[in-house]
Design a protein around this nucleic acid. Structure first.
Length: 275
DNA sequence: AGTATTTGACCCCC
DNA sequence: GGGGGTCAAATACT
């Protein structure tokens, strides 16, 4: 239900964007119409973001790690104990951040250790569970779930849960400044993509998947003013056409570069919610 | 030998 | 009650 609404909103935004492209191609820019369309587009992003927030927030989280060492004594057999001593007691689903992305590769800049795999009811492919390799030595709580996409078998749906607190995260944190930015200056709705700006660090890719990244313009060439980051995961899914526009209205200048990257982002985000 | 993966068991939560 | 997330012994790999 909510998914359909998100898609509707995003498609609406896409239609407005197409209209904007037509306007921008005109020699004499109707700046009032352009501004209106920009507001509409930005508003659509905001709306879709707010709606999707509710959807993504429902992704379950990992339980709290067990600290009960004594119950090991209760193990009498080689295999798992029976439920006399509740090893899993107190498990709860914390409100850690989670972020779902679609990728061609399951590799990223972090080291993961697989700790489980499950056949998911109604799903074609099993889901694999990974935790950060530094869970034990650095108490890093980041986990991720990887599942082959049914719609696009060459892609993987990766859900990142929790954030890295290991040294690897700190190392990659600095590289994050190279992430992509988008901006709609003349309106106040630009909080919209901000929601995407806070995926777990592990979902931000830089040096990997060059074969896709090389199709893009450099990060710095994308719009900037209000700094709104887009995870590169969304941008690297499709080649991005390098259109660039510049315009003025209300006395303030607005640059529109890589506007198609916005469409691409919109479409890819849409695909995450399609049934 | 140490480390990573597999896989059945276990438990929480809807 | 059952689906899904995690544990941990067994196994595979380096």
């Amino acid at each position: 239900m909510a998914e359909c609404s998100v898609i509707d909103v995003l498609r609406r935004g896409q239609e407005w964007t197409e209209e904007l492209k037509v306007l921008l191609a005109q020699p004499k820019l109707p700046s009032d119409q352009v501004e209106l369309l920009l507001r509409n587009i930005s508003g659509a992003f905001s709306e879709a973001t707010a709606m999707s927030q509710n959807i993504v927030a429902s992704v379950p989280d990992q339980r709290m790690p067990s600290t009960d060492e004594n119950d090991m004594d209760a193990i009498s057999s080689k295999k798992r104990r029976t439920q006399a001593t509740p090893k899993f007691g107190g498990r709860k689903r914390a409100n850690n951040s989670c972020n779902k992305v679609l990728r061609k590769s399951i590799d990223d800049e972090f080291q993961w250790r697989k700790y489980g795999q499950k056949e998911i009811f109604g799903a074609k492919y099993p889901r694999s569970y990974f935790r950060c390799t530094h869970k034990n030595d650095q108490n890093c709580q980041a986990t991720r779930q990887v599942q082959q996409s049914e719609k696009q078998p060459d892609m993987y749906e990766i859900t990142y849960i929790g954030e890295h607190t290991c040294k690897e995260a700190k190392k990659h944190c600095q590289q994050q400044e190279a992430s992509y930015m988008i901006n709609f200056k003349p309106n106040t709705n630009n909080a919209l993509i901000q929601h995407f700006s806070s995926p777990p660090l592990s979902s931000i890719k830089h040096e990997q998947e060059e074969e896709v990244m090389s199709n893009q313009t450099s990060p710095g060439s994308i719009i900037s003013h209000e700094q709104v980051n887009i995870p590169s995961d969304f941008l690297d899914m499709e080649p991005i056409v390098s259109d660039s526009f510049s315009m003025d209205f209300d006395g303030s200048s607005l640059e529109l570069e890589n506007i198609d990257s916005i469409f691409s982002f919109d479409q890819q985000y849409c695909s995450l919610f399609q049934v």
